[in-house]
């Protein structure tokens, strides 16, 4: 539980961050809240000779809501998300999901940027961002670019972000929809056994649109377009519910761990998804 030696940098601006990243390549990494990275360093599963702390970098925090478009700075903590009244109004699923992440101590430190950039399939925000169809803003030596959350994740800890890029914000449209984030976990502070993010809109008693994403059931977050499509046009009768769940089961690929064998996880995923859909439908 003692990390290897590392050099610590604390630049004041993005130029400072990028120059260290450029100089040291994949020997350098940024640290945000540190609640994923530092445990990995202490276990010596991540070796980071050059650690760049983002906390003094200007312009990375804050939540803005403008004409239905939400922007959350990468360094915004889960605690801040939970306590932001405007965000809770515009996208209540953010609060609902954040409250199910870790525990209050971790949430004081853990950031949205760290959570989505980490690439750990256990993190809850990546699935949530798929559901919201969010866009990630990255900055690198060649300037700024944006990438859809649904295109960002490649494999566990592998994302579309280049080693010399920093994620600065996540953006998404305020979802005017019924919502639910359902998560089964073993205890407070645990990653999901299975979790589901659901947004549903209703028109005249029928489902007009549905967006469904799952957490910790594959080596990346799972956006299940087919599951959402199975609901559209229905009034959530048994058949369409079953079709949605079956579609989701076709998209996930869980592995056995201490939370249980694959068979159980698939069962838990379907139960959790059903509950999330019912909940979102009631709120739509």
């Amino acid at each position: 539980m003692i990390p290897a030696a590392f050099e610590y940098y604390r630049p004041k601006d993005m130029a400072g961050v990028l120059s260290v990243l450029e100089e040291h390549g994949d020997d350098a990494r940024v640290v945000a809240g540190g609640h994923s990275l530092i445990p990995m360093m202490k276990l010596r599963m991540a070796e980071v000779p050059h650690l760049i702390d983002l906390q003094d970098v200007a312009g990375l925090t804050g939540i803005s809501i403008d004409a239905g478009r939400i922007r959350i700075g990468a360094m915004t903590t889960q605690h801040e998300i939970i306590n932001h009244a405007g965000l809770t109004d515009a996208a209540p699923i953010m609060r609902e999901a954040s409250l199910q992440i870790a525990d209050p101590q971790v949430r004081y430190m853990g950031t949205v940027g760290g959570n989505v950039a980490n690439g750990d399939p256990g993190n809850d925000m990546p699935g949530l961002m798929q559901c919201l169809d969010a866009t990630f803003i990255l900055v690198g030596p060649d300037g700024e670019r944006s990438v859809a959350a649904r295109d960002f994740y490649e494999a566990a800890y592998m994302t579309d972000r280049a080693d010399d890029e920093v994620l600065t914000a996540v953006e998404f449209a305020a979802p005017n929809a019924g919502y639910a984030y359902e998560k089964q976990k073993r205890k407070i502070g645990d990653y999901a056994t299975a979790a589901a993010a659901v947004l549903i809109t209703k028109e005249g008693g029928a489902c007009a649109s549905a967006s469904i994403a799952m957490t910790n059931l594959s080596d990346t977050p799972v956006y299940s377009a087919d599951a959402g499509a199975a609901l559209v046009g229905s009034s959530l009768d048994d058949a369409s519910m079953k079709a949605a769940v079956d579609a989701m089961l076709g998209d996930i690929d869980p592995t056995e761990d201490n939370r249980g064998p694959v068979e159980f996880k698939r069962h838990a995923a379907s139960v959790i998804l059903r509950r999330a859909i019912e909940n979102a439908w009631d709120r739509a």
Binding site: Q184, R186, T193, R259, G260, P261, F264, H267, A268
Partner: peptide
Amino acid sequence: HDHWRIWKTANDLGLH
């Protein structure tokens, strides 16, 4: 009696 073992007990008894 963690979640998956309880689930398995129920499953073995045909409760699913």
